[in-house]
């Protein structure tokens, strides 16, 4: 279970998150929507431990552990995974090596046996096939020269291999074609279990058709101004954020 209480964070002297309260019970999928610049990506980064953000208040516990005290790699090992809104390019780093290094780092820390190159490739090929990714994506440098959609698929591939307990998908649906959208949703659905939860950041109802959320939260100017069931997303699709924001003000 993820429990966020009164979380505030700033970058430099700019306060971006202004007291967020959010609970995601195990087994649930929650969607986060909200206007551009409202702090959605910031929330994802703070949860995964990016150092340029300073947490100025509040607590975050994940399955009982104090998440905010953990290094980014320790959070990954504990099961937190952030699919980046803008995945990072790593020139000179082979994608297959990157994926295997990450997977083995996590397996090692979890006390599982590391995979050798052959075992890994077998697993990775099965996943790329499921995600309808071309085989040569494994041979190329991480995200370098990947199309927008290919980068997003590569994020989903990492998620599928690392098998997180909390997946934070930051606009993973943006820039994806309709078929890919379904593949991403399938990727998340394949991980679903009583121990798995997800925070799905999105601007579109479409993904939520495939990935029906238990709750939908609206983030505006660093605060959650409204929470509701899946119907809230549909409502927003019709009416936009303006009236909600006016109401909250």
């Amino acid at each position: 279970m993820l429990e966020i209480r009164g979380l505030s964070a700033c970058i430099g002297d700019k306060e971006i998150l202004k007291g967020i309260d959010l609970t995601v019970p195990q087994g649930e999928i929650h969607a986060i929507m909200g206007p551009n610049g409202s702090g959605k990506s910031t929330l994802g980064y703070v949860l995964s431990g990016r150092e340029d953000y300073t947490v100025t208040g509040g607590t975050v516990t994940f399955n009982g552990a104090n998440l905010l005290e953990m290094e980014p790699e320790a959070r990954a090992i504990a099961g937190v995974f952030l699919a980046f809104q803008a995945p990072i390019e790593l020139p000179g780093v082979n994608n297959a090596n990157f994926l295997r290094t990450a997977l083995n780092a996590v397996r090692r820390a979890r006390g599982e046996a590391e995979l050798d190159a052959v075992q890994f490739l077998k697993l990775a090929r099965a996943e790329t096939k499921r995600l309808h990714m071309r085989d040569d994506m494994l041979k190329r440098n991480v995200n370098v020269g990947f199309s927008g959609g290919e980068k997003k698929r590569n994020e989903v591939l990492q998620m599928a291999l690392l098998r997180p307990k909390l997946a934070i998908l930051d606009e993973t649906d943006s820039g994806l074609d309709i078929d890919a959208l379904k593949i991403v949703a399938d990727g998340v659905n394949a991980l679903r279990s009583a121990e798995f939860s997800a925070l799905v950041i999105t601007h579109h109802q479409r993904l939520l058709d495939h990935l029906v959320p238990h709750r939908v939260h609206v983030l505006s100017q660093g605060r959650i101004i409204r929470s509701g069931g899946p119907e809230l997303a549909k409502e927003l699709e019709q009416s936009g954020y303006a009236s909600l924001i006016a109401e909250a003000a």
Binding site: G49, D52, E73, A76, L82
Partner: peptide
């Protein structure tokens, strides 16, 4: 720093 964070967020020390 972004590249380091990307790798660390995947569990790489």
């Amino acid at each position: 720093a972004e590249q380091i964070f990307y790798l660390r967020s995947r569990g790489v020390p």
